[in-house]
Design a protein around this nucleic acid. Sequence first.
DNA 1: GGCGTATGCTTACGCTGTAAGTAGAGGAGA
DNA 2: TCTCCTCTACTTACAGCGTAAGCATACGCC
Lengths: 217, 217
Amino acid sequence: MARREPLNREKVLDAALALADEEGLDGLSMRRLAKALGVEAMSLYNHVSNKADLLDGIAERVFAQVEPPDPELPWQEQVRSAALSMYRAFRRHPVVPMALVTDRSNPTSVRALSPLDALVGALYAGGFDDQGAWRALGAVNSLVFGSLLLSTGGFAADVREHAGATNVGAYVTQMNPAALPHFSRLLRWTQGGGVDPEADFRHALDALIKGLENQAS
Amino acid sequence: MARREPLNREKVLDAALALADEEGLDGLSMRRLAKALGVEAMSLYNHVSNKADLLDGIAERVFAQVEPPDPELPWQEQVRSAALSMYRAFRRHPVVPMALVTDRSNPTSVRALSPLDALVGALYAGGFDDQGAWRALGAVNSLVFGSLLLSTGGFAADVREHAGATNVGAYVTQMNPAALPHFSRLLRWTQGGGVDPEADFRHALDALIKGLENQAS
DNA sequence: GGCGTATGCTTACGCTGTAAGTAGAGGAGA
DNA sequence: TCTCCTCTACTTACAGCGTAAGCATACGCC
């Protein structure tokens, strides 16, 4: 009986991330993942304690791609680059933010959090006190994950194929223009193309950072 | 055989929302909902075409609680009050934003969107062009839903019981302080209590609106 | 009174995550 | 070399899910 190359956690997580990227979060089941690895479902439990653990694992893998900001830069630039790096890392794997929101298991690992630690450090260095840093961090994270989720999740899913449309404006496909005049003008504009989610996010981030400057005390 | 008071869509949605509030999104299954209504699961399909349709329905019900802003106010105030109203409506039903992100079905109804229409109108009136309004709307929505999701979802779920802790900072329960010095300082601060998610959100919203003013051209 | 239609129930299918038990291969110690 | 221990993977099984198909009942209208 031919001995198979043994599994390990890394291979499982790699395959899980690939499968999720390809088929969406719904397509990622233990059985399908096992099949993709040429293995039975229960074998995965030797390397992953749970499905939640599996999702944690792929989230951590994506977090690890986030680059910490250069501590020499002013705090505004550090916040901007850290936030953008998070945004880009998760944009490459659109289902992962949904996994983060959906699952509810272990505390996130130290490794995943280290870029955020640098970000908090930048805020402290920029003159924020504890509450200010807490709020600024929450605001930035909310904007990053909110942008990701609104441009990826159910909101926009039904029109994702339209011209790269994104965000909440996009999830209306037919409407009575008289009932929602401004909204339908906006929607018509988006259908002219030229919507770029990352550029939109950058704009929003710029605005937020500008506003945070006033609160830095 | 005693004739039962007949079901209707409204009753189904009411019960679904109540069940979801009470048991979380995972606790909301067709079978359990049916049992709560004293009915068999398949009977629900006479009033709801899908589980996704069910989730849409409860989301719409929450959207309907959002109050449109006073069109006499300056656009900044309109944005602020509309965003806050959305935040509060969804905060009362914490699982609904997750349902919105998770499901992927019909376009959202006109009724649900009318407060957003007013918001877009305020942006146009404030001097934003199409792209500016699009971006501002996306930024505000991202912040609202990001705040809701981070303070409710998997991120914070494992520590939700700690002192109302919220947002990304909260999902670390034990860590090596040396590895994440700034983060653990911040975390220690949050455990002193006094974290108020809505106040934090308001601060973030103020910052964002301040930043958007610069972009209003 | 009879009939069409709407409502709800029953059964069934294929899917899910995962608990429990079993088989076999690799390495360690005698 | 033989034996035993551990680790990996497989098999089976269970309870739950969403929902398709078919059947029974009760109401409103002719």
